[in-house]
Nucleic acid binder design. Sequence first.
DNA 1: ATTGAATATGAGACTAAATCTCAATTATAA
DNA 2: TTATAATTGAGATTTAGTCTCATATTCAAT
Lengths: 166, 166
Amino acid sequence: MRRPAQTSRAAGAPARGAEQSESSEKKLFVDFLLDKNLKLTRQREAVVDEIFGGSGHFEAEEIVQRLKLNRSRVSRATVYRTLELLLECKLVERLELGGTGSYYEHVHPGEHHDHLICTQCGNVIEFHNEKLENMQAEICNNFDFQETHHSLRIFGLCSKCGQIPQ
Amino acid sequence: MRRPAQTSRAAGAPARGAEQSESSEKKLFVDFLLDKNLKLTRQREAVVDEIFGGSGHFEAEEIVQRLKLNRSRVSRATVYRTLELLLECKLVERLELGGTGSYYEHVHPGEHHDHLICTQCGNVIEFHNEKLENMQAEICNNFDFQETHHSLRIFGLCSKCGQIPQ
DNA sequence: ATTGAATATGAGACTAAATCTCAATTATAA
DNA sequence: TTATAATTGAGATTTAGTCTCATATTCAAT
């Protein structure tokens, strides 16, 4: 996986409709903060705006840099701390692409998806399959396991890379 | 996840029967080396013996230490390098438990399993579900994606931890 | 508006995990 | 035995992320 990873949006993981505005998601975050007696600071707001404003997956360091270039000054520590909060309230998911560090992605409420990861070109394809999700729920049930979140990653060669003889 | 992680073997991921001896798996590794014009060294053999001899999941550093204590001297670099080879020939799988580093586990040929990971006590439950695997294969097929491997992790509270009110 | 207390931040030190370097060593085929 | 390609080890280095703690900020109560 040499090239910087890109994201394709697949059927089943459609672009968010107009019924879910960015500000309503931001409100979810603000409510989450209130609920935990945490404060809405300039820095947290900047991080959230940056993440909700972008698309695809990103590294924590990328947010640090984007903030540095574009607008407010937010420290690395605060970016990581805010990402933790966003993970907790499920507006962001962590994604390990097989390399060393973690990627993150903004997820719209109730729109979880899984990933096909091309180990050749780095392309990441999102998909969602309800039957798969249901079966996982069933398995959890069998084990009396209370799921909070899950991650399914399928690694291999995408349609383009699969055609080139290895 | 505070305590050192432990592994439970669940139904569907049974203990290996007598029909698959450790030495036959070692032969798979040796053949893999030969096939790639790689050499069977004392160090590689020591790493493989250590891994095939143990059970459950482990960190790379753990193997470095176990080798240091028990028998031969093998450098950290060589342990990591040998793990890469074992991943490639699918005798070992990498497992990210949500913390910083990676875990590995010895997998017997054709016996892949997935994981339920308790974020409270660190317990890791293995499971295998053929229907789930088939559906994944179908999804790959739909995307013309050639899978090499996959990883499904379900995080949450195990039956014990789920009973304790949060 | 002011105040106070709890919460948050930033700079940079620190840690952990993994990779890299390259001179010296070793396995294997001829 | 020899040639050579592959391998190794020690430790430097990189990377990703966490931690510390003095200072600053938020926000509810006044």
